[in-house]
Structures are given as structure tokens and as C-alpha cells.
Design a binder for these strands. Structure first.
Lengths: 360, 360
DNA sequence: AGGTACGGTGGGAGCGCTCCCACGAGTGAT
DNA sequence: ATCACTCGTGGGAGCGCTCCCACCGTACCT
């Protein structure tokens, strides 16, 4: 009859789950110290004598102790997880190297932490609702958001919930949230200067979606570049796109339909440049002889194009890394007692650089 | 002086964390029922009267209650999270559409659950060690593994730890773990039959890495197809690859170095077909006039090639979906009392289908 | 009428941690 | 020798749930 002992469910659980992995208490017993001390050692507190620390570490190793994440989260009121939110259609996440580079940078920054990364692609309203519910449950300690549109309500939600956030790319010049961004204006200006220096006189541009601040900056930089080169601005040379390859095609077609076609195009992203290049090939126009092309992002796509694409490099992976580090320090700040000063640089602008190849 | 009240840390935590989100207990008070009852309602237990359920649901809605995941995990000894493990170099995950399709399928299956997905790309030994540690901590309820090599030690580790797992693609014909796989043999056979039917007589193949069982199956199917078509097998027509674009290039070059070049190539993956196609273009060989090409996977790449690539379709997204569902039921099985029968189909082979385009 | 069964319910115990208070031993100043 | 600290340490309380047992009332039986 005595199938189960006193403990009831406790005993059962142990029995089911492979004899139970060790707990803090067991490590403490083994090391001949108290629970609190083991906790201090595991969490790297300095207030432990060297002798004790060694004893505890030995016990941890012998028992193969790994802290129970759920218990820790419950007791400490944190989750040790952050979310990377990509408010874009699912397939774009995979098509656009930008995102994977960001992800790689974030991963690298987190590799030394035991912070867990949740990848959240928010492609439609249903996903949005799920995310909101998720965030309301405080299931992450912080959020990274990439590719945010100017009117996106997500940042407000995060602020209301008091969840630390860092975004890649500002929503406007006066972005209140911590951000990491590339110097888009300067990059675009460099691109136009480069084309002008090579004797191009009729320089067009294909823009990204202008509800993204970065795309707007690139357009501003394009205009600045023209002015600095003493070239006349002509709004018919500005073809709107939305960062997709298809938009690159359409925009280039519209430029080629102009009475006087351009002799160079500054394209707002490498992916759009691929679309533009296809159209040029179909029309029998040579790159760079007939039309020079400069892209933006300097993703792997640029190197693989025919001819290899001149492109404005932004340090995407590094941006991902810095976003993660900034978020980590923001989280630390909210956890600590009040009055801890915000780290000096929660808003970072990184330089861009023109990488010249044979398309220009 | 009374900055903090009696509770000490409790009060502080509440104060810091935005007045505290509601707990089960508070919902219970509001609905005028006990804690257990609210728990039952939230977890969809049938043992609750309709009246009570309505009252609790109202209270949940009014308070905006969201269960605390950590507390639930701790009490119930589960995590409500699964991992998708990709034992491949990081960049391949993004380059190869196969993985993103799997991911999409998994995500769709999980969308109706509140199961959380962790994406784990295991590119090197350091990542492997981290994963092992992670799994030892039982931080996930189950694991999905894609692209597993025959000699990978990961499955043994999972078995030892008693973590439910489902893999995509078997490691051998006698795979003991639950799996979801495509009928690679049949797909390859169809491809060869198709080429033979179009009058090709000297049909070569470029294989994937043969320590992956699926690649081996495709090779077997290739041989079967030749035999069925009454064509002579010639091992010099078998060029080894490893699923990368570069390998596709190299392999095609070696085939073109043959004294008598093939008039058709069955390529073991679309990505490798891209590489092969580049070489053909460089050599001025026409597709399909000089050499017909058939790929495998029918990823989006195939449609975008020039000419569009005939390819063997495997239902990758569906495979991801089924993997997730299988894992979910495996997890349920281990949670339930002993003796629950395994669902009828923990091992699923899905049909493949030739999609004919103009490359053949 | 009394007995039995069972659906529905309340709440104690416990999951494995962190946080913090209290306490003992050592150190230096008085 | 006494006092005032500090440092290192042990362990109680509590995080918000789930699980389970005990209990209540009602319906149905004999």
C-alpha cells in the first residue's frame, strides 16, 4: 500500500523526473554551509571568503548543480530573458540580411550572459495582440525593437508597462527612447559625393519607406550631397520605394521612363538595388557605363552582385551588439535602487562608410 | 522615517514594479471564490460550474490578469518552452531557406499554444557546451533538432536527460527517436525518371553531405531511378557536395572536367543548384539545351532562378508544423501518468513531388 | 428516512530560489 | 578590558503558482 511516502506529490515528482537534479539546499549540505552562502557564490557576490567559495564551487561541480531558472525568476522578480521584436512580415526577416546581422550581433553580446533571447516576428495584428499580452505578463526583462515605423504604438506600450527598451533607428530626431543608429545622412552624402566625383551629373535616388526615419535621413543626405556637389535638385529624380526588391524594380522602371534618364542612382538599400539592377539588365543598360549604382547597408548581397555593388556600409552586427549591451545596462538600472545614473551613452550614432566597388 | 512598511522587500518590489500585476489570489478575492478554483478556470479544467467559471472569467478580464510564468513553471515543474536546435554554422541558417521554412511551420503550430520557442543555432563547440549546460538545467520541455548528422552525440544526451525530442530527417533507416522526414528516395527517383523521360541519357548527380541520411537517400533514389530507366550507372557521374553553393560550383566543375560531360544533372539541393548554374553560365553552356538541371527542396530560390529550376518539392513548412505537434504530444505523454499509449504516428514520412519548370 | 456517491470547491503544502535580518567572530580604537 | 565596527555567515520568509486532500452540498439510491 505504501506506494508513495509522506511527501505526496513531492516524492512523485522526484520519482518521475529522473531522481531530481540537485537544489541549492543539497549543494549547501554537501559543502557544509548554509543556503544563503551557496546562493552568494553562485551569483558571484564578493562577500564570501575564499575558503568557503572554493568548497561551494567544489560541491557545485561534484553535484552538477544548475540553478533552477523558474525559481530564480520567481524569487528575484526577473526573467533573465529579453525579446528581439521585428515588426515586419515574416518572410522579410529572412530575406533581408539586415535582420540576421542584427541578430548575430545581439547573440554575440548575450553569449557571455545567461540572458535568453526570444525572437518575435510581428507580422500581423494577431501577432501584435499576442505580443502585447506577452509583454503585459512581464515575461521578459527588456525589449529590443528593430525597424520601427514612426507611428508604431509599441514604444508607448513598453513605456506604460515600464519595460526597458532599446530601438535600432530612431523614430524621429527627438527620439526619447534609448537607441542605436547609423549615421544615415552622412552615408547618403558620401554616396552622392562619390558619384559626383566620378563625373555623374544626373544622380537619382530610390528611397526606402519614408515612415522609417532612417530612410528619410538617407533622402536628406542625398539632397545635402547634391547641394554640396553643386548639382541641381530635381524631385522627379526621387523615386519612392519600400525596401523590397520589387519596389526597387518598380522605382527603377519609373526612373527609366523619365524624358531624360539618370546617369547614376543612389539606392536606399542593397535589396532594392538588386531589383533595380535586374531592370537595367533587362533594358540592356550597362552598369556602371550607362548608369552607376550605389546601394546602402553593404550586406553580403552587395559583394555577390554582378558587378559588385558599391554600397554604404553601416556596422549592423556592431549595432546589434551595442543594442544588447545598452539594454542590459538599462535593465540593471531599473533593478538597482533609485538614483543610479543612466550610463553616459544610451543613444549611440555609429559612423557609415562608403565601400567602393565596380558598380560606380 | 516610515519609507518602507512592514513587509520589507515585498512592499518594495510592489512599489517598484508598477503597483504589481494581479495574482491568482487577488482574482479569487474579486470573484469571491478560492485560489484553486481560479487556477482551474485559467487552466481550462472541466470541473468547474458554469456560473463560477463566468464569475472568474469576469474577474480575470477586469483585473487584466496574466499568469506568472515563473511561478507556474516552478510549481508545475515544466517550462512551457521548447528549443529548436540547428546544428549548423550560423550563416547557413540564414542562407538556406530550408531552415526558415521549418521555423515558420513550427511557429504556426505553436501560435495557438502558449509554448515558447527558443532558437538555438549551434555553430561551434562552445555553443555545444552551452547547449548541453542549458539542457542539463531542464530549461525546456522538449527539443526539435533539424539537420542532424549521423554521428551527432546530441540525441544521446537528450535521451540521457529524459528530454522529449523530435528530429527532422532520420539519422538512419532505424531511427529510434520520433522523426518527421520527406520521402527523399522517391523524390530523387522522380527527378531521374523525369530527366530520362525527356531523353536525357547521361544523367549525373551532385550529392549533399553523405553523413546526412537524407542526402544518402537521394543518392539511393538517383541510382534506383537510373536502373528503372534502364540507364547504366556510372560512378564518375556522382559528384560529392555538402549542400553549400560553393560545393555546387566545385562539383559541377568536376563534372564538366569529365571526358564525356553529362546531359543532365540532378542536384541534391536548390542552393547547390545555384552554384552549378553559375558554372554553366560561365562556361557558356545553356540550360536546359546543353545540360538539364533538377534541384531538390523547391525553395523560393528555384522559382527565382534563370531559367526557373525544376525541383523536387518537399513540404518543409508542413514538416516543421508536424514536428512541433509531435513534440507537443510527446511532452504531454511524459507528463501524464505512466501507461499512456504513444500517439499512433511519432514517425512520419511525407511525400515528395516533382515540380517541373524550364530548367529541364 | 438514512446512506452513498460525486461534482464542485477551499485552502495547505510545497516548488527552489533570493532577499534580508540577525548573529558570531574578529579587528582596531578607546 | 571594553566598545564599536566590519565581515562572513545561517536561515526565515516569501515570490505566485499547482497539486492534492478534505469537505460541503445535492442527487440518487435502498
Amino acid at each position: 500500500m505504501a506506494i508513495r511516502e509522506t511527501g505526496g506529490r513531492n516524492t512523485t515528482a522526484r520519482g518521475t523526473r529522473g531522481a531530481g537534479r540537485p537544489t541549492l539546499e543539497e549543494v549547501a549540505a554537501r559543502a557544509g554551509v548554509g543556503r544563503g552562502t551557496v546562493s552568494r557564490v553562485v551569483n558571484g557576490s564578493p562577500r564570501v571568503s575564499e575558503r568557503t567559495r572554493a568548497a561551494v564551487e567544489a560541491a557545485v561541480a561534484e553535484l552538477g548543480y544548475v540553478p533552477n531558472r523558474a525559481a530564480r525568476a520567481l524569487a528575484a522578480n526577473r526573467t533573465d530573458a529579453i525579446a528581439l521584436v521585428v515588426p515586419e512580415a515574416e518572410h522579410r526577416f529572412f530575406v533581408e540580411p539586415y535582420f540576421s546581422d542584427i541578430l548575430r550581433g545581439v547573440n554575440h553580446a548575450l553569449a557571455d550572459t545567461d540572458m535568453q533571447l526570444l525572437l518575435t516576428i510581428v507580422g500581423n495584428d494577431r501577432d501584435r495582440a499576442r505580443l502585447a499580452h506577452y509583454l503585459a505578463g512581464h515575461r521578459v526583462d527588456g525589449v529590443l525593437v528593430v525597424s520601427l515605423r514612426a507611428d508604431d504604438p509599441l514604444p508607448d506600450l513598453l513605456t506604460d508597462l515600464g519595460i526597458p527598451a532599446v530601438i535600432s533607428g530612431r523614430r524621429s530626431a527627438a527620439e526619447p527612447l534609448p537607441w542605436v543608429d547609423a549615421d544615415n545622412v552622412s552615408g547618403a552624402r558620401q554616396a552622392v559625393a562619390h558619384l559626383a566625383a566620378r563625373g555623374r551629373r544626373r544622380i537619382a535616388t530610390i528611397t526606402g519607406r519614408l515612415d522609417i526615419y532612417g530612410a528619410r535621413c538617407r533622402l536628406d543626405g542625398y539632397r545635402d550631397g547634391l547641394a554640396e556637389a553643386g548639382l541641381e535638385a530635381d524631385d522627379s529624380l526621387i523615386a519612392p520605394g519600400d525596401f523590397t526588391e520589387e519596389a526597387g524594380r518598380t522605382a527603377m522602371e519609373s526612373l527609366l521612363a523619365l524624358p531624360e534618364i539618370p546617369d547614376a542612382v543612389f539606392v536606399g538599400s542593397d535589396v532594392m538595388a538588386v531589383g533595380a539592377r535586374q531592370v537595367l539588365r533587362e533594358r540592356g543598360l550597362r552598369v556602371p557605363e550607362d548608369i552607376a549604382l550605389v546601394g546602402f547597408d553593404d550586406t553580403s548581397i552587395a559583394r555577390h552582385m554582378d558587378p559588385p555593388l558599391t554600397s554604404v556600409r553601416q556596422p549592423i552586427e556592431e549595432m546589434g551588439r551595442l543594442m544588447a549591451l545598452t539594454l542590459l545596462s538599462e535593465i540593471a538600472r531599473t533593478t538597482l535602487p533609485v538614483g543610479v545614473p543612466r550610463p553616459p551613452q544610451p543613444q549611440l550614432m555609429l559612423p557609415t562608410e562608403l565601400i567602393a566597388r565596380t558598380s560606380s
